[in-house]
Nucleic acid binder design. Sequence first.
RNA 1: GGGCAGGUGGCAGAGAGGUUAUGCGCGGGACUGCAGAUCCCGUUUACUCGGGUUCGAAUCCCGACCUGCCCUCCA
Length: 455
Amino acid sequence: MKIYDTLSGEKKEFVPVHEGRVGIYVCGPTTYDYAHIGHARPAILFDVFRRFLEYLGYDVILISNITDVDDKIINKANELGKDPIEMAHYYAREYLKDMDALRVRRANIIPKATRHIEEIINLIKILVDKGYAYESGGDVYFSVKKFKDYGKLSHRKIEEMLAGARVEVNEKKRDPLDFALWKASKPGEPSWQSPWGPGRPGWHIECSAMSMNYLGPTLDIHGGGADLIFPHHENEIAQSEAATGKPFAKYWMHVGLVRFEKEKMSKSIGNVFLIKDFLKKYPPEVLRLMYLNSHYRKPYDFSEKNIEDSLPLLEKIWSTYQILKDSAMQEEPSKDIAMKIEDAREKIIAALEDDFNTREAMKEYLSFINFARELKGGDALAALNFLKEMDEIFDLLPRGENEGKEKELIELLLNVRNEERKRKNYEIADYIRDELEKIGIKIEDTKEGTKWYKI
RNA sequence: GGGCAGGUGGCAGAGAGGUUAUGCGCGGGACUGCAGAUCCCGUUUACUCGGGUUCGAAUCCCGACCUGCCCUCCA
C-alpha cells in the first residue's frame, strides 16, 4: 500500500503507527450553510479509502469533525437573527443527511468543537506554558516564528508569505503571521470561561485538540480538501507539534478542489451547486461514480455535461446487476470465469493500493461489468457475488431489492404492456414505457423478455 | 512575486518508457413494432512547443509558453 503524502511530496509505503490499526482524521465542514458538491468529494473519497483499508483487514478509526463555532457562523446567525450554535447544528444535521443520501458511511466519531472546549483550553494552556503562545487583550495567539518548521506542509517560507500581503491587520498580534487560538467574545456571542476570560476557540485549534484527543499525538492519516493545506493544516501542525514535540500525522492526504463550469465554486460568483439540489435531479450514486472515476488529487471540473456523461455508465452497472440477478443460478462457476474474477480482483486491489487510484480501479471494474453482462447460470452468480464484494468498497449498486408489492405492480404493468404490444397497441405500450421512465423505472425489451431497473 | 497541479483525439477525461484507455458525439451494420440497451466495424500517424537521455518518450531530464488553484473565507 502506497500513499502520496503532501508533506514530503512523494508516494510513501504505508506503515501505520500501530500494526493493523489505522487512525484517520478528516477535516469536515464549518456548518453555516447547506453543503455543496465540493464538500461531497473528500467525504465520498475518504469513505471509499476507509472501506478499502477495512477490506484489506485494517482496523480503521475514522474521525470527521464538524466545526460549529466560528466567525462565519456568528456573522450569518447575526444577519438572520438566530442563535449561532443552534443554526450551526441545523446545518450540521443537514450535512449529515446529505452525506447519508450519498451513501457515505458515517465516521466512527463525528466530534463537534463546542463539545471539546475543555480539551481545546488545555491544549492552549500547554502552548502558553511552553512559550509558543501569548495572551493579548483576552485573545490568545500562536507565535508562528517560534515554531521553526512553520511552512513545511505548504512548502513555503515565512519571508515569502509576508510578500503576499493579504495578512490581516490586528494590533493585538505581536507579529502579523500569528494566528488566534482563542478569541475574546463580544457581548451576545457564544462564549466559554477560560483562564484568559470569556471567549471561544480560534479556527484551527479544534482539529488539533479533537484529533489528538481521539487518536493520540501522532495519527496515521490526516486529510481534507486541498484548500485546507494553508493555513488550516499548516497551523494544525504548528500547534500540535509545538505542544507534543511529536510528528502530528504520518501521511497528509489532500483531495483536489471541485470547479463548476470551469470556475471555482464560490458564493460571490453564484455558481454553488448544493447537494440537495443535485439529489433532486440525479441519483446519488452518479456523484460517487463521478468522483471515483477521476484522480483524487486532481481538480475536478464539474459540469452538467459531466453528469450526463456519467449517467450511462451508472445505468450500465445497474442494468448489468439486474441482468445477472435474473440469470444467476445456484451452480459451480466455470474455471475460466473464476480466473477472470480473480484477475479483476487483483487489478482493482493493485490500483487502490497505489495511492487509492480509484480511477484505475473503476476502469477495471467497468471492463468487468462489460464482460459480465453476457454470463449465465453459475457464472452469473459468481460475477454477481464479485460485484457485491466490490460494493463493500465502492457502494454503487442499486439499493434495495426489486421485490415485494412494488415488484408485483411493475411486473403486472409490464405484462399488460406486452399484451398490448402483441395486439399492436403500441400507443398504450409506449405510454406505459414513458410514464415508468418518468418515475425512475427504465425498461428494456430484450430477447429474454422485458427487463426493468430503477434509476 | 512565491508555492502546487496541469496542458492528451470533435468533446470530456485516464495512463506514466515499447502493447486498444474509457465515456460521449459522429458514420455504417446486426437486433427491434418503435425506442432504448447490447454487439460488431469505422471516425486512417491524440499527447503545447524547443532541445536532450534512450534501441525506443505522451511518459524521464532541461528550457520556454499557456491554464487552473493556493498565499489567513474555504471540503
